[in-house]
Amino acid sequence: MASSDFIEELRGVVSLAIDHADQDLRKKINQELHEHPETAYQETFAHDTITQFLEDRGFTVKRGTYGLATSFEAEIGSSGRLVVICAEYDALPQIGHACGHNLIATSSIAAFLGAAEALKKSGAPGRLRLLGTPAEEGGGGKVKLIEAGAFKDEIAAAIMAHPMPTHQIFGPDASHTYDGLAGLKMIASHKFRTEFRGKTAHAAGEPWNGVNALDAAVAAYSSVGLLRQQIQPDERVHAVIEVGGTVPNVITEYTRMNWNVRSPTIARADKLLARVKACIEGAAIATGCELNYIV
């Protein structure tokens, strides 16, 4: 059989495998994960649901891999180049699966099922691994996996698909669409938290004896708001005050903020991060608070 004919046959094998699993992928993975959103490192329902789904289809699955209770691995093949398909399944706090990680898990599992059948049909050497990657939404799950050795093998490719909003797929006049990564702009991102520590005091009786950590958080937020006037149009800085105090008549002694600093390249993101940190550190100096970065 000509190689082109064989490739077409393998494509048919992939399509058939995914078609056979289509309803189960929709109901047992996509819908179930969407209805049971879990945040970073708490994805026990997703972990158990996906691993059971794979085991029911004859795959050997390792649960709780690389020191992360909600990571997993399933692999076929014993020699040759290794391709890793990553699967995300965590949700956003209070919002649920607004970023579509239920769709990421579904598409990654579908790709794994189809490619596994094609690999078996081809008889060629090669390994295929589905890797569960928890805590993408701010938890640094993939960083922990890298540090734990999840990608230490010689890997030919590590791949994943991500859903996108239509305004990023269609052109300005909706007359054409983009195919693949080449048509989409990816951005680098620094994610971190800051803590400001001050000194409590009665806000009415002796405010002069307090050091106000809420003032530090507000000053940092406001300074970065002014900084936005002088950053590039394709750069972004956003933050929230996660802990802002308790009662108004007590000087706030502790605040915590969550930050995202984004730019098209890591080099530009590093420069922007330095400017943002100058605003944060200036707020600490101005208020007399102690500053701590949480990465």
Rank of each mutant, 00 (worst) to 15 (best):
E154F: 01
E154N: 12
E154Q: 09
E154K: 09
E154L: 10
E154I: 01
I155D: 00
I155L: 04
I155E: 01
A156I: 04
A156N: 04
A156E: 15
A156H: 05
A157Y: 09
A157H: 09
A157N: 08
A157L: 05
A158M: 06
I159H: 04
I159P: 03
I159F: 03
I159Q: 01
I159R: 12
M160R: 01
M160Y: 05
M160Q: 11
M160D: 06
M160L: 13
A161M: 12
A161F: 02
A161Q: 07
H162R: 00
H162I: 02
H162M: 04
H162S: 06
P163T: 00
P163V: 00
P163G: 02
P163N: 02
P163M: 00
M164G: 13
M164D: 00
M164S: 15
M164Q: 14
M164C: 12
M164T: 10
M164N: 06
M164R: 11
P165F: 00
P165S: 07
P165R: 01
P165K: 02
T166K: 07
T166G: 01
H167W: 07
H167K: 13
H167Y: 12
Q168M: 15
Q168I: 07
Q168P: 02
Q168V: 08
I169H: 06
F170V: 11
F170C: 06
G171R: 02
G171N: 11
G171H: 09
P172Q: 11
P172I: 04
P172W: 05
D173R: 08
D173W: 10
A174H: 12
A174D: 07
A174G: 05
A174C: 10
A174P: 00
S175G: 12
S175W: 06
S175Q: 14
S175A: 15
H176T: 13
H176F: 13
T177E: 09
T177C: 12
T177V: 14
Y178H: 10
Y178N: 13
Y178T: 15
Y178D: 10
Y178P: 00
Y178C: 12
Y178I: 14
Y178W: 08
D179R: 14
D179M: 14
G180I: 04
G180H: 04
G180E: 09
L181S: 14
L181H: 13
L181K: 14
A182G: 15
A182Y: 06
G183Y: 11
G183L: 03
G183H: 10
G183C: 03
G183I: 01
G183E: 01
G183Q: 03
L184Q: 08
L184R: 04
L184T: 14
L184A: 15
L184D: 00
K185M: 06
K185L: 07
M186W: 09
M186I: 09
M186V: 13
M186E: 11
I187R: 05
I187E: 05
I187P: 01
I187T: 14
A188W: 04
A188M: 03
A188E: 03
A188R: 11
S189D: 05
S189E: 09
S189A: 09
H190N: 13
H190S: 08
H190W: 08
K191S: 10
K191F: 09
K191C: 06
F192R: 03
F192A: 03
F192G: 00
F192I: 01
F192V: 02
R193I: 04
R193K: 15
R193W: 13
R193V: 02
T194P: 01
T194W: 00
T194M: 01
T194G: 05
T194C: 08
